[in-house]
Design a protein around this nucleic acid. Structure first.
Lengths: 140, 140
DNA sequence: CATAACGCTTACGTCAACGTCAAGCGCGAT
DNA sequence: ATCGCGCTTGACGTTGACGTAAGCGTTATG
């Protein structure tokens, strides 16, 4: 198991640009070490990137993602107050995602219905007629 | 069942600004009629708005949403080619949403795990100690 | 040793999705 | 008749999430 990664390795693995990874660093989402100027990414950094990209795919803003990452970092060594704050935030995200899941399932149902309708129209031969633009429209 | 709506009614119903609805019109997502200058939204417009907002919530861009709406409009009266194009596009969206659903489910699992961990820490009384900032830290 | 290949910083550019004025029109109530 | 309200059309501003170009240092390869 590799311990460290260059920026280039990660860009290829996750299909993001180096600009993006540096930007995430500027925004405080990751903090790779340096050997001189050069960034050295650890497995921890890599794990965070995976979380970031998944968060991005499900529609979280970078600010929200940063907040979650911070909570994961700090809710252990903070006091009760910090921990309860983290719990509340986690539940917020939870509810947001649950709503989103419903939206997605509804959309999936509709899309499958639309595709099914197209397929049965094709099966019924209702679409074998060429379009309006057909060059055979007047023959028959 | 109401047949038409003012812009204000819709902004209240869906909690969006009038600016947003006008913007969607500029972008070709809806096309309400006019009584003079004033926009009159039909049930069809309203249905499209519902689709737009749900699409937005699940992370589609307005361009993607417009494409889908256009497909719903035109794949009926187009020829076979149009219809098959629509089918392909619908399947693209379908796969995108399925991937997204997996991401969401994974995120939900993690969030529930994190919340569960917090809860058991609390139940075990491992969090009753005040934070570092405590005013009683030196007494004992 | 020159020239990629990779890495860095700084800084301006871009695109989507609206927000935010500014200025004006129609119209029902006072 | 004018007040204010709601609606309208520009047009510029803003925010998030990067893209892109300039310019430079380091490593490796023919």
């Amino acid at each position: 198991m590799q311990r460290t990664y260059t920026i280039r390795q990660l860009t290829k693995e996750f299909d993001v640009t180096a600009r993006t990874l540096r930007f995430y660093e500027d925004e405080g989402l990751i903090a790779p070490e340096r050997r001189g100027q050069t960034r050295i990414y650890s497995n921890r950094d890599r794990a965070r990137i995976i979380l970031i990209l998944r968060g991005r795919r499900v529609g979280f803003s970078l600010a929200e993602i940063r907040e979650i990452l911070d909570l994961y970092d700090t809710h252990h060594d903070g006091g009760v107050k910090q921990t309860l704050h983290a719990r509340r935030k986690f539940e917020e995200q939870l509810h947001k995602l649950e709503r989103q899941k419903v939206d997605i399932e509804d959309s999936l149902v509709e899309l499958r219905r639309a595709i099914g309708a197209i397929d049965s129209a094709i099966a019924d031969g209702k679409l074998t007629a060429p379009s309006v633009e057909s060059h055979r429209v007047a023959a028959e």
